[in-house]
Amino acid sequence: MDIKELTEDELVPMNLLLLADPSKQIVEEYVKRGRCFTAQEGGGVTGVYVLLPTRPGTVELVNIAVLEEYQGQGTGRELVLHAVNEAKKAAFKTLEVGTGNSSIGQLALYQKCGFRIDGVDRDYFVKNYPEPIVENGILCRDMVRLSLDLQPQGVNKGL
């Protein structure tokens, strides 16, 4: 698998981004302001993610999606780890990600990659999306916020 950043003249894989976020308007807005990376295998795009700086020292993984036939094969994990490395190379201190309360697989993936739950934006999806989102038989209501500290952890030498 090859992961690379899209150039300005390359088409954004909107169909793939819409798998993770059903609002074309919202996706188009953050793609304009962020950096888009694609995973390619066998001559085609199999996965995508977008990094978006949100405030000083912080970048957010605002969208990550993998074609259904490539899910469960490690592509998502490779994309998340690539995003971590890109954020570190760009000298960000924190990488954040938000996902739906109903996104059971994604919540597990992020935590396996070292992210910790920071909080919950209650009713985020109910307030920001016109149609209900149901995933894994669960109504997606809340945004679960996770973050990863990108700073090397020093040795605590005490006082």
Rank of each mutant, 00 (worst) to 15 (best):
T99V: 05
Q151W: 08
G100L: 06
G119A: 12
N128C: 08
Y49L: 01
Q106S: 13
V84P: 08
I3T: 06
G98W: 01
L11F: 06
Y124C: 08
M14N: 07
E86P: 05
I26V: 03
P130A: 14
E78Q: 06
A20C: 10
G105C: 06
K32Y: 04
Y129S: 10
L107F: 12
G158S: 08
N63A: 05
E78P: 00
T38K: 03
L11S: 14
D118W: 08
C140S: 13
V126Q: 14
Q153F: 03
G42R: 02
V59T: 14
T58Y: 09
G154H: 11
L139R: 15
Y129I: 07
E8A: 12
L159T: 11
G76F: 04
D142A: 11
P132W: 02
A108N: 14
N15T: 11
K88Y: 03
P130W: 02
E28K: 12
N85P: 00
E10T: 03
L18N: 11
S103R: 06
F115D: 11
T7Q: 06
D118R: 14
C36R: 03
E135W: 13
C113R: 05
F125P: 10
N156T: 05
T54D: 04
E68D: 15
A65W: 04
E86W: 02
T75C: 03
V48M: 03
V27M: 08
A108R: 15
E135V: 14
L18P: 13
N85C: 03
L95R: 07
K93G: 10
T58R: 11
V66W: 02
K112E: 13
V97L: 06
P152D: 12
S102C: 13
L17A: 10
A65G: 03
L52E: 09
M14H: 09
N156C: 08
G114C: 06
L81F: 01
P13K: 08
D9N: 15
V62G: 01
E86C: 09
S102L: 12
L11Q: 13
T46M: 00
L81P: 00
Q40N: 09
G105W: 07
L81C: 07
V84K: 12
E10P: 05
K24R: 15
N15H: 14
Y129A: 10
